[in-house]
Design a protein around this nucleic acid. Structure first.
Length: 217
DNA sequence: GCACCGATCGCCT
DNA sequence: GGCGATCGGTGCT
């Protein structure tokens, strides 16, 4: 059976509509040697276009760095930040309107040992990284999946290297919770809007910030 | 040209 | 909980 993919039209919707639907979907990284890494999306944030003061595209900003935000829905937007980390977004809404969903955490599913090797690199460690430390943050998951600027502008609906797949039929993603987005500076009311969605009971989220205490584990 | 800072992480106290 | 790492993007002089 050929792998299932989204249709372009499925992603041609605003980021705050797409984001919750991405919980439970898989992000799949395939290497030239056939190695496959897969994680299930458990945490996302929506960035809502030119008006969104937390977005790289705020006030219509457009540059070589964020050009892919203006591309077709289904395009990957990968950027470099803090001098050492990459973060990955799924571009959505109509082409030319810079909406995107930041992938903040994955539950590792396939290729876990390879992810661990990618995360650990050459650094000697007393204990191997725990599974919950592999993809529990936007920078971590890019390191674990070998996602960098070379995958910026990749088409997640057709790329052989990086793909977005819908949940397996019958997969229950679990209860989701909404919170404000993480790590924003002064963005006025935009910092307060609840544009982050997390699988509330997942052990693989980046932080429990904003989640009800009763859901802490 | 140059100074500031970031959609983060890991290590330290 | 705090802070340094590390460097490209951005905006101002």
């Amino acid at each position: 059976m050929p792998d299932r993919r989204f249709r372009r039209a499925d992603l041609a919707i605003p980021a705050d509509e797409l984001a919750p639907r991405l919980l439970g979907c898989s992000l799949v990284r395939t290497f030239a040697d056939g190695t496959v890494l897969r994680g299930v999306i458990v945490e996302v944030e929506a960035y809502l276009g030119p008006a969104d003061q937390a977005s790289h595209a705020r006030d219509g900003r457009r540059s070589p760095r964020n050009e892919s935000m203006y591309a077709r829905p289904g395009t990957a937007y990968v950027y470099f930040t803090y001098g050492m980390h990459h973060c990955m977004n799924i571009v959505c809404a109509e082409e030319g309107l810079p909406h995107a969903v930041l992938i903040r955490a994955l539950a590792p599913a396939d290729g876990i040992d390879r992810m661990r090797a990618l995360r650990t690199g050459d650094k000697p460690r007393k204990r191997p990284l725990a599974d919950r430390d592999l993809c529990s943050g936007p920078g971590k998951l890019c390191q674990a999946m070998a996602i960098d600027r070379s995958l910026d502008r990749a088409d997640l609906l057709n790329s052989t290297k990086l793909a977005l797949l819908p949940p397996h039929p019958g997969d229950a993603p679990g209860r989701s919770a909404r919170t404000p987005r993480i790590g924003l500076g002064e963005c006025g009311a935009w910092a307060e809007r609840r544009l982050r969605w997390v699988v509330a009971d997942s052990a693989y989220v980046s932080t429990r910030q904003g989640l009800p205490r009763a859901e802490k584990r």
